[in-house]
Each structure stands twice: as structure tokens, then as C-alpha cells.
Amino acid sequence: MPEKSASNLVAEPQSPPKIRSPKRPAGTLYRGNEGMWSWVLHRITGVSIYFFLLVHILDTALVRVSPDAYNIVIDSYKTPLMGLAEIGLVAAIGFHAINGLRIILIDFWAFGAKHQRTLFWVVIGIWLVLLAGFIPRQLMHVFGG
């Protein structure tokens, strides 16, 4: 920030010195590589899983309050919309789990740090295989009746 010169120490009532705290201007996007985007995905999936678990603990705890209320809530999950949301849930947990193993390898194995980019695509590969196995079955389950 510009330093106020000594002349400003003399009182100038008509024009108070404009002192602004250094503000952080709005940022622009950093173009990171696989490592950064895997971290972004890891964070997004992690937060989503956290909120899912929150709801999941609440609806499971409901059985202690009232079994009828529990049944109503569980029945409301048996809609096609929730069936599709379950695909998102499995995708999020799958990525978070496999990428978590990648991060462990990076932290504890020099080979992992050196080949993190390859490992990221291995993670994506395993994840896609997982989804390829799950999504058709889930869609049959939801829409097959």
C-alpha cells in the first residue's frame, strides 16, 4: 500500500487521508493439472458424503422414535429421483475411496509422488469400471419395476 508522506501528518480537516486496508482483489482461476482437479473432486465428493451421512444418521435414528415415521421416510426414497441420486452417491463414495488410496500412496511411497499423474488416471479407470458395473444394474432396478 502507498505510504502516506510526512506532509499528511499535518492535520487536514477538509480532506481526511484516504486510508484503505489492503483488500484482496477478486481472484481468477488457476489452471492446475490433474493433481489440483483431483483435489477439487475429492473435496466436493467429501463434503457431499458428509451431508449424506448427516441425513442418513437422522433417518436411521428415526426408527427409535417411531417405526411408522421411519417407514414413511424410507418409502419416500423409493422414487426414480432418489434412485438416480443413489448413482451420484455411489459415484461420489467410489471416487473418494479410490482417490483416498492414491493420496495415501503419494504420502507414504516415493513412487506414488513421482507417478501421481498416472495414478490419477488409474483412479479414474477403476472408478469408471466400478460405475459401469453399478449404473446399468441400478437403472434396471429403478426403472425395470
Binding site: 493433481g35 483431483s38 513421482k114 501421481q116
Partner: peptide, 17 residues
């Protein structure tokens, strides 16, 4: 471990490592 630092280092230091 986003590896942005390793990519950015102009001296090629394996920072994340």
C-alpha cells in the same frame, strides 16, 4: 498433495515429494 507447487517450481524441485 495437489502438485500445483511441483508443476510451478521454475527450478524443477519435487516440492510435493
Amino acid at each position: 498433495t495437489t502438485f500445483n507447487c511441483t508443476d510451478a517450481c521454475p527450478r524443477g524441485i519435487q516440492v510435493t515429494q
